[in-house]
């Protein structure tokens, strides 16, 4: 079986394969034993044989209890092993570096904290724990890298995570393994594992603009600045210092302007209308992607920071 397996390219892969091989040996032995006994009985007690058949109908309670209890104990042992490995697979180390993944029909959009973006590919350094924080823009997808023995569904409206530490340089297939529509089979890509130095060079080379700058560009491109800009004639809320502040709403309640609020204000503006403003903002649902929202939030966050510093300077 070892030759059949995909390459072991993460710290977890070896442990997973060991468990697999042990289980294969156990279940294989039992299966072969049962087959051998079955064939032996079939030959020895075939209709025309003259084998001894005295006391054929005895039921032996001891035998029954034995083959109930022994598999049970074996299964409990396997469960214990599996669950301890599994809790390791599901719990990222505290120092794992985050990378963000947005899935949509039918592509993977990857966003590094430094602003580097990739589509259908992921570059990671060797030997460093990586934590992927993932969400989906439409249906359920699943991030699957066979070489890492890791897999996690990517859900809309929620974040899920997956972690690994790559141990071997090379390119490994990245697959979507939750059925997601027409081009499900084409929602594939590559994970490239690089030496830390190469990775640093790669980050440098692809260091486009930071996330906040991308957001600023989008702020203009999507026409946000047309209403929310300082020279605008439209009566729309000023967004300086918005992030983290408390916003009074039209229905009298108040809400903290966190990521969720900003995202909803862009995608579902009618949901929470700020007090004193007409509900005239159009919804951007379907017009811009989750990754765009991400950039816009980063941009608004940065405007929050700049106003803070400006205030301090006064």
């Amino acid at each position: 079986m070892m030759t059949m397996a995909p390459p072991q390219a993460s710290t977890l892969a070896g442990s997973v394969d060991t468990l697999f091989d042990v289980m294969l040996a156990l279940t294989g032995t039992i299966s072969v034993a049962v087959f051998v006994v079955m064939i032996f009985f079939c030959v020895k007690y075939r209709r025309r044989s003259h084998a001894d058949r005295s006391n054929a109908n005895q039921t032996r309670l001891g035998v029954e209890v034995a083959w109930t209890v022994v598999p049970f104990l074996m299964f409990m042992a396997l469960f214990g092993w599996s669950i301890s490995l599994w809790s390791r697979m599901r719990t990222p180390p505290a120092d794992a570096a985050p990378i963000y993944v947005v899935a949509k029909q039918w592509m993977w959009k990857v966003q590094h904290p430094g602003g580097q973006r990739e589509i259908d590919s992921l570059h990671v350094p060797l030997g460093r724990p990586i934590r992927l924080v993932m969400t989906s823009q439409d249906v359920i997808h699943d991030f699957y890298v066979p070489a890492f023995r890791q897999k996690q569904d990517v859900l809309p409206g929620r974040y899920t995570q997956l972690w690994f530490t790559a141990t071997r340089e090379g390119e490994y297939p990245l697959l979507c393994s939750q059925y997601c529509g027409t081009d499900h089979a084409r929602m594939t890509g590559n994970v490239t594992v690089m030496k830390p130095a190469d990775y640093a060079r790669w980050l440098q080379a692809h260091a486009g603009t930071g996330l906040a700058e991308q957001g600023a560009e989008r702020f203009r491109r999507f026409g946000c600045s047309g209403c929310h800009g300082s020279q605008s004639s439209v009566h729309a809320p000023d967004l300086d210092g918005l992030y983290g502040s408390t916003v009074p709403l039209a229905d009298g309640s108040q809400v903290r302007a966190d990521d969720r609020y900003i995202r909803d204000s862009i995608m579902l503006p009618r949901k929470q209308v700020a007090a004193g403003y007409a509900p005239i903002m159009p919804s951007y649902t379907g017009r811009i992607g989750e990754d765009d929202v991400l950039a816009l939030i980063a941009y608004l966050k940065s405007r929050h920071a700049t106003t803070e510093t400006a205030r301090e300077q006064h």
């Binding site: 709403l249 039209a250 229905d251 309640s253 809400v255 909803d264 579902l268 009618r270 949901k271 929470q272 209308v273 509900p279």
Partner: peptide
Amino acid sequence: IRYTQQGPLAG
């Protein structure tokens, strides 16, 4: 069909 509620809990 017809949903006109507003506010943070509307969703």
